[in-house]
Write a protein that binds this DNA or RNA. Sequence first.
DNA 1: CTAAATTAGATGGCATTACGAACTATTTCA
DNA 2: TGAAATAGTTCGTAATGCCATCTAATTTAG
Lengths: 142, 142
Amino acid sequence: MDAHAGRDQVSAELMDGLVQASFAVMALLSRVAAEHDLSLTQLRVLAILRDREPMMAELAAHLGLERSSVSGLVDRAVRRGLVRRDASEKDGRAVRVALTPDGRRLAGVITDKVADLLTPMTRGLAPADRRRLSGLLARLVG
Amino acid sequence: MDAHAGRDQVSAELMDGLVQASFAVMALLSRVAAEHDLSLTQLRVLAILRDREPMMAELAAHLGLERSSVSGLVDRAVRRGLVRRDASEKDGRAVRVALTPDGRRLAGVITDKVADLLTPMTRGLAPADRRRLSGLLARLVG
DNA sequence: CTAAATTAGATGGCATTACGAACTATTTCA
DNA sequence: TGAAATAGTTCGTAATGCCATCTAATTTAG
């Protein structure tokens, strides 16, 4: 399409690949989330809490959301019994968010399901290519 | 964590890479969208309409949304002057959705901006690696 | 040591998003 | 022609996420 002789710009092909692959992955994640009556954000919360017990503000930072948005998010997760609010002992204002056993269980199930669904997406790639892709993506996000 | 000697499962590393890279790309897209007072979905609509003038139902299929969701989406885009609803001549019920000149202009600006922001993400990759990644992603989504 | 400023989080009001069910208008087909 | 199917819209509902505001606890200054 537009040539855009970009000095050092990402190529249109790479941009397209990244964007399309991302949408595909997000669609897959949304599907899995929906199967368990979760939003994508709730799914993210479970994933984040798998190896952290952050304060509300930290969780908000991880999610890239405002504190106020996370309040309601955590409310709903608590109502479902997936997440727990623990009062901090150091700071009477602060709250530590943690998975309940149910939440941890669900997080595991979801991880497995995502792997299940991601597998056919990578069908076209030989094992060596998968390893290559894995390495390249790691360097991309790292 | 869990070994899960998956017969042919996607590796935990690849899953992580794909998911994390996708979230990074989506965050970037959301940021660009927000800069122009658009939601991620509105941004997608503009991108889709760049090379199509679909019926409402086709647009819904592209987005993976219900028809009813797309009605409001298009309403708001029309109100902003980004998108046009053309009555089909073949079918008195059908509506063709198309970009207005303003919408097309904005779509172009956004594409450029996305390329701009994607570039630093790929800073860690040598040109050859970028091409490799591009090819691998193409095969992933293709 | 108290008063002011800061911080953590919650709350309320708002627009958007997305869904499903019900509705209208136009085809299509029997 | 009349019944069924189809294209979109509308309506009611829940969730998301923002901002501004509020409360309570903690720091910092004077």
